[in-house]
Write a protein that binds this DNA or RNA. Structure first.
Length: 906
RNA sequence: GGGCGGUUAGCUCAGCUGGUUAGAGCGUUGCGUUGACAUCGCAAAGGUCGUUGGUUCGAGUCCAAUACCGCCCACCA
């Protein structure tokens, strides 16, 4: 007999690295049926996920942990099902975020601003930064066990992807869906760039509403007006009142004077104005307010811009030129007070637009930017979800998607940054635009246009990072080239990401995919939620409640973290994660380890050469197998429905609560019988443990891979034919996913039969514990089991062993004339158990116990009798009714037995 | 203003084909270690499933209303 080599404790630190290396070296991460193989079969449909590319210089957080765990689970599951599987990894250049990091570093190390070293040097410096830190995040993703095909790793600023970005831009431009022009956009004064509507968040903050007088020219009259931003008065080009407002009717058409500047502006009527709010009159600043901008368009008002790019006041602000906007607010208001124009200030809760990145206050401003005309793209994207070509999981996000797509505004795609894809447009000497796939082509166009060689200059702006991310599912596969990868792997299968970037990323990928490839980029969108702390608070450095996944992995293992994230989350909902939870799952891994050790030990004790031909499975064998089948079916059903968390939970409960707690205990006894029984048990052990490890593998890949290797070796020593043809593949990662399986000669209804034995064992153990019978002392027992006697007798060695009964004085019989002398009786369904513990019993207490049992049972009998005499008996399906009848009969039997025992006690 | 999600044990959450005794982990309490596991085992306490009404033989589960919490979108100066 060979002693198994499974170490006593699980050292996940060592195991994880070694296992990952083994997977990678064996090239298990690469898809089978590679499109460049000569034998490639295009009819086999692959399963493909594009990774949500993390910021190239980012640091691993739990959000990454969740998506990696989730996607890796899907990938591993499909890989095990034998489907060619590709998970494309990569990272995003993350324009603003990365540029800010490098700017900060530049200031720290050299005390310089980026303008001082110039664009070229700055971009080169950023590339260096990327080369230095860009590998960290992908390394960390490996640690999570991600089975991505690293040979296909991509970066959004790679040559190939840059070609894709330019191609996409040029195509849209040529189609007339990209335009450039001055529009009111969201300006980030600190970053000195435009940002899209999505990048602005509104926060409620206390502020003031300022009331003041708008004087009417050549008159003593004035219109009272309220504003939250007095400095914008400098840019007013009208005062608007409601056309039906009697108070202000007389002013419509008159001329008002801008405070301090005395600029003349018209008083107009527009039904947008709310008569009830503020003073009922509205100042109009088309240059710095989106609603005013629209009113301005309706009335053809002049647009006056009062801000510089750094949000100081420009020359249009007269005496305030050069002041910061908030200083100007104070100063202008003070001057107006002096001029007698101020009415009052009241407290008011404002909604301040703030930059999603950095939180500075965003100023609406007129600026010349590039835009994508989005409506045509959005319509196609809407249609793709409506007609089911794309399914969103969970379903309730479909509505959110529709709502956004139906109300979408043109997308501002230009950013005044240096790090990113530069807009492929060049300007001739007179500003003529030449959009081309390269500078050479633009030059040719320009020369042809002017009829002579001219100097052209490229647009300085770069594209919004999301413009390139939007191409990700196909740009990473080689688009615009018709590469074998693109042909075979596109469209991809599932897009898995957080709901917080549904609009930023998912919606744009759908629009881009349809526009450029004519196909949906994926058939399913799976959205997960945000990871919060155990109290449901967002994790933040200021709150100090951030859980670092790297620390967690160090302390409790990657599998424990993954299992916690996967089992704790359900589609589209936020997940509260606590270290306690991870700890519990580390314990789960430990249990898995130890259970396997026991299995291996038992396998050693069983004789491999025994003849099991005539031996049947025990009830316990049948029971665990029947449960295994149920669990397998459940897990498969749940996986199909994307309910991975519930699947993991069921595996956890089954493995721990049934396999480890019960079957392993029984297996010990069965193996100790030796001979064929031991061998038969060993076979059952291998089969169940094998299936458990397979189904847990997508959740906890490292430990299961490790244990499965040992199990396989043990199976080999045990005499199993260990070969891929025989279901023992080279590694668990590529092993076949289990289907519910019949076992020859097993009893399908073992679950109900066996549960009686479990109840009996529990009852005996409880009484022993309650009466403080020494754990080691063996007592006798008599069990009467009526019709169940035969099936129960088969388990008698098990019951004896698990309850520490003395086999000499233990029997299971059909009935008994009288209660044995000196025993105390327990009633379990149709069975009665007599234990020789009468001396330990206080008859009064025992009476009380029996009476309360009887009461409980009587209640059930009443309930069921009522139920069965109600319309239920006629209307409910026969099997459901029968079940209740059986139950009632069982309760009645129990009640009788308890009653007779009470009688005996007197 | 529009939309969505949640409300189940002290805490965090399952319970997604409606089936009659609602589960887990953690926490609490008691008992238990010489062989798989104290990263453990055995057991106990703890819930009128937010409220009201409806559908149904039957509702934590389906429908409607309502309260509270949270989120998203739109942005009344």
């Amino acid at each position: 007999m060979k002693k198994h080599m499974l170490p006593k404790t699980y050292d996940f630190r060592k195991t994880e690295g070694r296992i990952y290396q083994m997977w990678e070296e064996s090239r298990y991460f690469e898809p089978t049926n590679q499109p460049q193989d000569p034998n490639h079969d295009p009819s086999i449909k692959p399963f493909v996920i594009s990774i949500p590319p993390p910021n190239v210089t980012g640091e691993l957080h739990l959000g990454h942990g969740l998506f990696v765990a989730m996607e890796d689970l899907m990938i591993r599951y499909n890989r095990m099902r034998g489907i060619p599987t590709l998970w494309v990894p990569g990272s995003d250049h993350a324009g603003i975020a990365t540029q800010l990091q490098v700017e900060k570093d530049l200031m720290k190390t050299e005390g310089k601003r980026r303008e001082e070293i110039g664009r070229e040097a700055f971009v080169e410096r950023t590339w260096e930064w990327k080369r230095k830190y860009g590998g960290i995040i992908t390394q960390q993703i490996r640690r999570l066990g991600a089975s991505c095909d690293w040979s296909r790793e991509r970066f959004t600023l790679d040559n190939g992807l840059s070609v894709a970005v330019i191609e996409a831009f040029v195509r849209l431009y040529e189609k007339g869906l990209i335009y450039r022009g001055p529009r009111l956009i969201n300006w980030s004064p600190g970053l000195q760039t435009a940002v899209s509507d999505l990048e602005v968040e509104y926060s409620e903050e206390p502020g003031k509403l300022y009331y003041f007088k708008y004087r009417i020219k050549d008159s003593e009259d004035f219109i009272p007006v309220a504003t939250t931003r007095p400095e914008t008065i400098l840019g007013d080009t009208a005062v608007a009142v409601h056309p039906d407002d009697e108070r202000f009717q007389k002013f419509i058409g008159k001329t008002a004077l801008v405070p301090i500047l005395d600029r003349e502006i018209p008083v107009i009527a527009d039904s947008y104005v709310d008569k009830e709010f503020g003073t009922g009159a509205l100042k109009i600043t088309p240059g710095h307010d989106i609603n005013d901008y629209e009113i301005g368009e309706r009335h053809h008002l002049e647009i006056v811009s009062i801000l510089n790019k750094d949000a100081t006041i420009n020359q249009n602000g007269g005496p305030y030129a050069g002041q910061d906007r908030f200083d100007c607010r104070k100063n202008l208001w003070a001057d107006m007070a002096e001029a007698g124009l101020v009415i009052k200030e009241t407290d008011y809760t404002l909604k301040i637009p703030r930059s999603q990145r950095g939180g500075e206050i965003i100023e609406p401003m007129i600026s010349t930017q590039w835009f994508v005309e989005i409506k045509p793209l959005a319509e196609a994207a809407l249609e793709a979800v409506k007609d089911g070509r794309i399914q969103i999981v969970p379903d309730f996000f479909t509505k959110v998607y529709y709502n956004w797509m139906e109300n979408i505004e043109d997308w501002c795609i230009s950013r005044q940054l240096w790090w990113g894809h530069r807009i492929p447009v060049w300007y001739g000497p007179d500003g003529e635009m030449f959009c081309a796939r390269s500078e050479e082509l633009a030059q040719e166009k320009a020369n042809a246009h002017y009829g002579k060689p001219v100097t052209i200059e490229q647009d300085p702006d770069v594209l919004d990072t999301w413009f390139s991310s939007g191409l990700w599912p196909f740009s990473t596969l080689g688009w615009p080239d018709e590469t074998p990868d693109l042909k075979y792997f596109y469209p991809t299968s599932v897009l898995e990401t957080g709901y917080d970037i549904l609009f930023f990323w998912v919606a744009r990928m759908i629009m881009s995919g349809l526009e450029y490839t004519g196909e949906v980029p994926f058939h399913t969108v799976y959205l997960h939620g945000i990871i919060r702390d155990e109290l449901g608070r967002k994790m933040s450095k200021t709150t100090g409640n951030v859980i670092d996944p790297l620390v967690v992995m160090d302390e409790m293992g990657t599998d424990a973290l993954r299992f916690s994230l996967l089992v704790g989350s359900s589609p589209g909902k936020d997940t509260n994660l606590s270290l306690k939870k991870v700890e519990a799952n580390r314990n789960f891994a430990n249990k898995l380890w130890n259970a396997t050790r026991l299995v291996l030990t038992l396998l050693e004790q069983a004789p491999a050469d025994a003849d099991t031909a005539d031996l049947e499975w025990t009830q316990a064998d049948s029971w665990i197998w029947a449960r295994m089948r149920q669990i397998t079916n459940n897990v498969n059903r749940l996986f199909t429905a994307y309910q991975y968390g519930e699947a993991g939970r069921q595996l956890y409960d089954f493995f721990w609560g049934e396999f480890a707690d019960w079957y392993l205990e029984i297996a010990k006894i069965q193996v100790s019988e030796g001979g064929a029984r031991a061998k038969k048990t060993a076979i059952a052990l291998i089969k169940t443990m094998d299936k458990i490890l397979r189904m847990l593998h997508p959740f906890t890949p490292f430990i299961t891979e490790e244990l499965w290797g040992y199990l396989k070796e043990a199976a080999n020593h045990f005499g199993a034919e260990v070969s891929p043809e025989n279901g023992w593949e080279d590694a668990l990662i590529i092993a076949q996913w289990p289907e519910a399986e019949e076992l020859e000669g097993w009893e399908e209804d073992a679950i109900t039969e066996f549960s009686l034995a479990m109840e009996i064992i529990r009852a005996i153990r409880n009484l022993r514990a309650e009466k403080q019978v020494k754990p080691g002392s063996r007592i006798g027992a008599t069990i009467t089991a009526g019709e169940q006697t035969n099936s129960l007798q088969e388990l008698s060695p098990t019951i004896a062993a698990l309850c520490h009964l003395n086999p000499e004085s233990f029997q299971i019989i059909e009935t008994l004339e009288n209660k044995p002398e000196g025993t105390v009786a327990l009633v379990v369904g149709p069975a009665e158990i007599f234990l020789p513990l009468f001396d330990l019993i206080d008859p009064e207490e025992e009476k009380k116990r029996l009476q309360s049992d009887l009461e409980e049972v009587s209640q059930q009998i009443d309930r069921l009798e009522k139920l069965l005499s109600s319309p239920f008996a006629q209307k409910a399906p026969a099997d459901v009714v029968q079940k209740e009848r059986d139950r009632l009969a069982a309760f009645q039997e129990t009640a009788e037995k308890i009653q007779s025992q009470l009688n005996e006690l007197g």
